[in-house]
Design a protein around this nucleic acid. Structure first.
Lengths: 195, 195
DNA sequence: TAATATACGGAACATGGTTCCGTTTGACAA
DNA sequence: TTGTCAAACGGAACCATGTTCCGTATATTA
């Protein structure tokens, strides 16, 4: 957060139009993501924001940066919710289950987000990394607590679980026969079977 | 299988070069899929087969048709293995588990196949449909047998389970920290928890 | 108000799927 | 064997999308 000051140089104030456009882009992207999914054409986002395409790249060097920026708040909220749950008096396994459900509710409602999170397209690597960096430690804590309490098996890695849950969210929209929540519940229930 | 004869008109024998090219394309596609994944550029497949790109579309109207053709044998084998397992004296839940593992071994080793199976790109819809049509009924039988034997809960649909398993296979290659087999085991283990 | 760095827009480029069209060729009959 | 022609072919052309470049416009500050 204090990165630029830490670098020792006073942060040169951005031009007003630049700040305005950045916000317009975030708003436009958020709106377009809702209707067309996170893989919507860049041009759509640009025109919705009333700017040229280059302006997107000027503010968000990679597509992943834009997506990250749009969802940053929610990812942070999710991470914090995990910490809160862990500190609460909810039993560890239930805390884990609730937190995972919250994560699923977040991801599964963002059209295409889950797919892009697991995509091996290098353009999305940093997005994947951000989610992993931010959420895996939280998940690990919840997982450890439940394991320590003897409620679940202890041979599953938090990274692996997060990937699995993320994968289960793929295509969760638009197919009434597929309910990601139910499958994630199944997966989490599987944790209770000690090997 | 007897479709063209059923239509009443004698099947006009294809030209020799056409048959030759079709086979060359299947071979080339199989080889390219191994090295570059099923989303390899069409041009790569064409040049590997020594034909022009249009020849691909002439033989396989959609990309999905090509992929289907390449993997048809293995999908059939998988379906038949399920039938065999069901008829064997392996206990139903174990039969289900074994069959699912076999499916995972198949899908998770085909780079990009799992992702494409769940893609909402209409170009791949028929591929998705083929897998579903062929495998869901088999899965349903195995699932029902296990449920009837009281070994698992009975509120999970075969379609949903197959989608879940397929999803868990996404990105299974190239990430040593993610083992699709282990997660699928977890999911299947979750079936034993009666709700 | 003038000078300049900053930011901008849209054209241009790269890549990949798909279609079109003029040319080639296999099959068959004379 | 050769002539005919529908079948099949190759690759250029077309379209969509991500990304970069460059000439222009403008916010800022002196």
């Amino acid at each position: 957060m204090a990165d630029e000051r830490a670098a020792g140089k006073a942060a040169p104030r951005k031009r007003a139009d630049a700040r305005r456009n950045e916000q317009a882009l975030l708003d436009a992207a958020a709106a377009v993501f809702v209707t067309s999914g996170v893989e919507a054409p860049v041009r759509d986002i640009a025109s919705r924001a009333g700017v040229g395409v280059a302006t997107i790249y000027r503010h968000f060097p990679t597509r992943a940066d834009l997506i990250t920026a749009v969802y940053r708040h929610q990812v942070e909220a999710c991470a914090e919710a995990g910490v809160t749950l862990l500190a609460s008096d909810v039993p560890p396994y239930e805390a884990l289950g609730r937190w995972v459900n919250q994560f699923v509710d977040f991801v599964a409602t963002k059209h295409g987000l889950a797919a892009v999170l697991q995509s091996d397209d290098p353009a999305f690597q940093s997005l994947h990394a951000y989610f992993i960096d931010r959420l895996v430690p939280v998940c690990a804590d919840l997982l450890r607590a439940a394991a320590d309490a003897g409620e679940i098996r202890s041979d599953i890695d938090a990274y692996e679980l997060m990937r699995g849950v993320g994968n289960l969210c793929i295509g969760a929209e638009g197919d009434p026969r597929y309910d990601a929540r139910r499958l994630v519940e199944l997966l989490v229930a599987g944790l209770r079977h000690k090997p």
